[in-house]
Design a binder for these strands. Structure first.
Lengths: 227, 227
DNA sequence: CGGGAAATAATTGTATACATTATAGATCAA
DNA sequence: TTGATCTATAATGTATACAATTATTTCCCG
């Protein structure tokens, strides 16, 4: 996508991710257009794209609202990730070339370095190489369009935020799992790879769950935001 | 979507499904607009939607082409359907109310009737109630996001065409599987439901595969279509 | 006072003109 | 002849005006 369209997309997306556009809020095209200094046309483009990515939803009235996530939705997201990424990992184990394996190991070691710095863990670095690791894993699965699309759909606000719930112990555990995953792929054992990935994601779910519970305990009766 | 947008969507989609727009063909917005008597704006809308649904793909050049399907893509679709619908079936088994079960049984019986008419099988009727059956199954699973994902996958050209490869014996077998699925859901046994659905879809894949092989045997070196 | 229909306002849908970008072709130099 | 660069052409991207639809308010009737 070219300039204005991208501008609109990232403007809206960042406002949703940051919570400035709260779940359920109606998104008016003109308002958004004015907000990021483009016309309605690229805004409409961005909204269509975000609809496909489940960031927003469209009512029966043709109006657009920020997506609202139920607990069930979140569980489903993790379950689907489990299935889909597990499948991708298994296929990668069957197909990975020495070059890919070396690259995965490299990312894993880069995470190692980021986590064990003298001046404390480099979370940004972790996130960067973590993304690279998972992306390569999925790409190597070789069912590019489907797996990539599904992965993109699962790149939801809730998932993005979950990474921020990780403490250092979680990050280290995550890295240990990556190391095992590289071993499974090197051994070309698809079921081993699937099992590790499955555990990896299920653990992420429980980290999210714990953080969510803490959050709710802290503010049990928060009134709904004003939209 | 309102009128012009829908017009464009169905115009393009039907031409892709019928093969008039062959895989790989470039789709020019103006051409499409002229073809269905609307302006470029709704055509662009339709193309964005069809991009998300994987009917078309966009090159690096911002141009749009009819999607090309590799054998691997098709295998992946069936594998993913297996996982996703299996999950949906399992959830449905846990959640289905007596009303839903009765409705599923009704659809299954309607298929029974359509297949066992004196004057021969009513394939149209089969397709109609088959769709209704699977849709209710997925809806009852109770996850909007899941439903959205499945809808995208299930609507692919390759799937639509697969149904046409079924002969009457396949249809009868399919119906027998539906009947068992209703039993599994009535028994509230999620893993039974998952197993049946899994077999259901895997069998569909092999029916498709066989038809595909026959087709390739008949015209082994067909030249690429002119676009 | 309450309910409903009509008028009004707000929002999205569509068409068109123009801007920008990418491709293909031509021209020229090495 | 080949390759590169510039130019022309054709495609997509964007802005704007207007049409159609949906929501809201108003006002009248019961």
């Amino acid at each position: 996508m070219s300039k204005a369209s991208e501008t609109a997309y990232f403007y809206i997306r960042s406002h949703i991710l940051s919570g400035q556009f709260a779940p359920g809020k109606q998104l008016r095209e003109e308002e958004l257009a004015a907000g990021c200094g483009v016309s309605r046309t690229p805004v409409r483009d961005a909204l269509r794209r975000m609809e496909a990515e489940l960031y927003v939803r469209r009512g029966d009235n043709q109006r657009t609202y920020v997506a609202e996530w139920t607990v069930q939705d979140i569980q489903d997201i993790f379950t689907l990730r489990d299935m889909l990424e597990g499948y991708a990992a298994a296929r990668t184990a069957e197909r990975a070339t020495p070059e890919v394996i070396a690259q995965l190991a490299e990312y894993q070691q880069a995470i190692d370095v980021a986590l064990n710095r003298k001046e404390g863990a480099d979370v940004e670095g972790f996130l960067h190489y973590n993304r690279a690791f998972h992306r390569l894993l999925i790409e190597t699965a070789g069912s590019e369009r489907l797996t990539a699309l599904l992965a993109r759909l699962l790149q939801q606000p809730i998932i993005v935020r979950t990474a921020l719930s990780y403490d250092v112990a979680d990050l280290l555990q995550s890295n240990a799992e990556h190391k095992m995953l590289v071993a499974a792929i090197t051994a070309k054992d698809p079921e081993w790879a699937r099992a590790i990935l499955s555990g990896h994601i299920r653990r992420a779910f429980h980290v999210y769950e714990a953080a969510h519970t803490r959050l709710n305990a802290r503010r049990p009766n928060e009134p709904p935001e004003d939209n």
